[in-house]
Structures are given as structure tokens and as C-alpha cells.
Nucleic acid binder design. Structure first.
Lengths: 205, 205
DNA sequence: AAAGTAATTAAACAGTGTTTAATAAAGCAA
DNA sequence: TTGCTTTATTAAACACTGTTTAATTACTTT
């Protein structure tokens, strides 16, 4: 059925247009301030049409959130060439932070905002598989570090969570503008400097 | 002028009523889903009156956010009896996390939400003095630790930021429901367990 | 060409934060 | 007490929001 195929393609095309428009607006004004009508204006369709392609606003931004994880996992690919697990762990942190600083709004959507995860949590019942994938990578790397003699005396599961927390904390405080409390002359570099201190600590474990 | 005084008191009274109603609703439904009309209904006044006491919705929740810091600083008072700076540092983390877990919505407002801090940032130009105070406490304690021989080879300002980040990360990932990635049987305790791992690390620095 | 199906829209609903002009209440001077 | 001024309060409107409905247009199949 060639016609059905073409219709499918057309439908996919408009879905993609909505996503592109939504992403552009969202990176410009943020999720909250991007309205369905804004998106509809951008693609020159009526607002109602969006509900034929997405159940609600949440689903749109959940789709973008998935794209963000693609992007992050892409950047993590270079780690495959790093044999030393401790070096790999540090490089993961570095890539993670670079991604967050370069794409603060996307990071916000992926790891800070509450909206899209609630959606995942309610509709599909596999708990946030995008996040689960990246966490599994971290878990494996840390396991390798432990096998290589690091992290003795530590419980690996909460340690993994702590390491993620530390890096997430560094960037999320910055993104949500809680950095004004640090010395003014260091505010611009505090995230990277904090990561450096973290590396010094990891090197001793 | 007794009359002016009484009027001032009356005015303060309604302001307080608004705040109490706003806090109750906010703890029940969250900031976003608490509307000006909800608050007005609760206090049995018209919505418009609120704008005679607060410039906008942000200012209401900024006032509550201040109350949260009072509460947190109150809990921190027990630290004054802890002489050993390293013990005090760890106790700070423990209190911080307990506060966050017991008052997740308040913590959210204080350290995760973007709204009220933007308000502070724009209107009054002293950068988030509530947060600044607690950070200063942390900075001083860490300085004391350094003077006692800990944290050699570390730059204290970014280290302070890192330590705050680690603890903030632990609780904020939990509050924003990114914990489903950890092993299911440990999700309920992962924050405290993560803190335990952090303590093990601190003990070696 | 007629019928049926899918895509698209206009309009409405119930809600939001905020501003406006009008009203009610209170205090003050004569 | 009267009139005047100031303050507190409200009703109504404005310009939005996400979402649903029924109606309309476009397209495919018979």
C-alpha cells in the first residue's frame, strides 16, 4: 500500500515539524513559557492539530527529553576508547558537565524539571529508561574501578548514586542560579573547578 | 499615633493570613498549582487584594522561601555544641538532608525551583542572602577542617561548592524522582546511604 | 459521482496572573 | 455631625493558558 505509506510519512513529517518548532521555542523561552498556541503559530497550523500527534504538552517535551539523551549518549561514545576505568569515570564526569553547561535548558528538562518524568512514570511503566541507561553505564564503570582495586570499603550502589549526585549537584545549582553565594570572581568557573576537586578526591580512592 | 500603629498591625495581620494560606496550599498542591484565586478563596477575600500586599505571586513564595531558611538555620543551631569541625561538617550534611527529606516541597522552593530566586535576583540586588548565609557557615566549617589538617592540596572555595553540590545532588535527584534508576530495593534509603558513602570519603581527607 | 474516512479547524470551556476603575470603609478637619 | 480625603476592597475585564468538542475541509475508495 503505497498510499498508506505516504500518508504515514506525511503524518511523521508533521510530527517532526511540531517537535522542531517545540524545541526551538523551548530552547529560546523555556518549557513553561512555550505554549501550544506558540508552537501552532510557528508551524502555521491550528492549536488543535497538535493533539492529534501528542496526547498533551508533556508528551511533546518528553519526546525532546528523549532526544537529549540521544545527544548525551552520542557524546559518551568517545569513552569506548578509554581503557582505564578510573580515567573513563573521570572523562564521563567531564562530558556530563560539558553537556550540561552547553545545553542548560536540555539538561534542565532531562534532570531537573519534574514534568516529563511524571509523564513517563504514569504512562509507560518502565521507570525512566533513558536515565536508567546512562546510570547503568556509570554503574558498570564504577564496578570496573572496584575490580581494579579502587573504592575498597564502599557499597557500590549508593557510591554510584553519590558520584552521580555530586556531578549533578555541581551543574544543577549552577543552572538554577544558586551560584551567587560563591566568591564573585570564581562564579564563572566554579562548576569546572568543583569537578577538579572531585577528581582529586577520586584519585585517592 | 496609636491609630496608625493599629492599622499597621491590621495590615500585617492580613499579610500573614495570605502567607499562611499560601503556605498551606503550596505544601498541599505545590507552587505551580496554587493559584492566586485559591489563596483568595482560602482567606475569603477577593483575588485583587493580594496585590496590595505582594507585588506578584513570586513575592509570596519568596516570603515563604525565607521562612524555610529560618527553619533550616534553626535546625542547624545544635551544631554550635559540636567542637570537632569534621564532625560538625558531617552533622551539617545530616541535618541538611533530614530537612530536605522532611520538607521536600520547601526544599524544592529553596534550592531547586527557579521562580523565587529570579525575583530576588532582579529586585533586591544582594544576591540571595538567605542562601549566602548557610553557604558561609559551610565555608567556615570547612576552613576550620583545613586548619585542623584536613583537605590538604585542595582549593577550599570550589571544594566547599563541591561538598554542597554532593549533598544537594543526593536530595534533589530524589525529590525530582530520578531515583528509579537505582536498585528498587534500595530506592527508599539511597539518599541516606549515599550520604554514608560520602562520610566514608570525607573521613579519609 | 457518491460515500466514507481521515486531517484540520474554529469555537468553546475552565482555568491562569494581573490590572483597572469603581465602591465601600475608615479617619480627619471643620 | 458634616464634608473631605485617604485607604481597603472588590467586580470586572484583559490577555493569556491547556484541552476538548463539534463542525468542516480534504482525500481515498467504492
Amino acid at each position: 500500500m503505497g498510499i498508506a505509506d505516504r500518508k504515514e510519512r506525511d503524518k511523521e513529517e508533521l510530527r517532526e515539524k511540531i517537535l522542531v518548532a517545540a524545541k526551538a521555542l523551548f530552547l529560546e523561552k523555556g518549557v513553561e513559557k512555550t505554549s501550544i498556541r506558540n508552537i501552532a503559530d510557528q508551524i502555521e497550523y491550528s492549536p488543535g492539530i497538535i493533539y492529534h500527534y501528542f496526547r498533551d504538552k508533556n508528551e511533546i517535551f518528553h519526546a525532546l527529553h528523549q532526544g537529549g539523551f540521544m545527544q548525551l549518549m552520542e557524546k559518551m561514545q568517545v569513552l569506548r576508547s578509554v581503557r582505564n576505568p578510573m580515567e573513563r569515570l573521570k572523562a564521563m564526569g567531564s562530558i556530563y558537565i560539558t553537556f550540561a553547561i552547553e545545553n542548560p535548558d536540555m539538561y534542565d528538562l532531562m534532570f531537573i524539571k519534574e514534568a516529563p518524568i511524571d509523564h513517563v512514570y504514569n504512562s509507560e511503566h518502565d521507570c525512566w529508561k533513558e536515565g536508567g541507561g546512562t546510570f547503568e553505564n556509570l554503574r558498570m564503570t564504577i564496578k570496573e574501578c572496584a575490580d581494579a582495586g579502587h573504592f575498597t570499603g564502599h557499597d557500590l550502589e549508593p557510591l554510584t548514586y553519590l558520584i552521580w549526585s555530586a556531578v549533578h549537584g555541581l551543574v544543577s545549582l549552577h543552572i538554577r542560579k544558586r551560584c551567587e553565594v560563591v566568591l564573585p570572581e570564581r562564579q564563572n568557573t566554579i562548576v569546572r573547578e568543583g569537578l577538579e576537586e572531585f577528581f582529586k578526591i577520586l584519585d585517592r580512592l
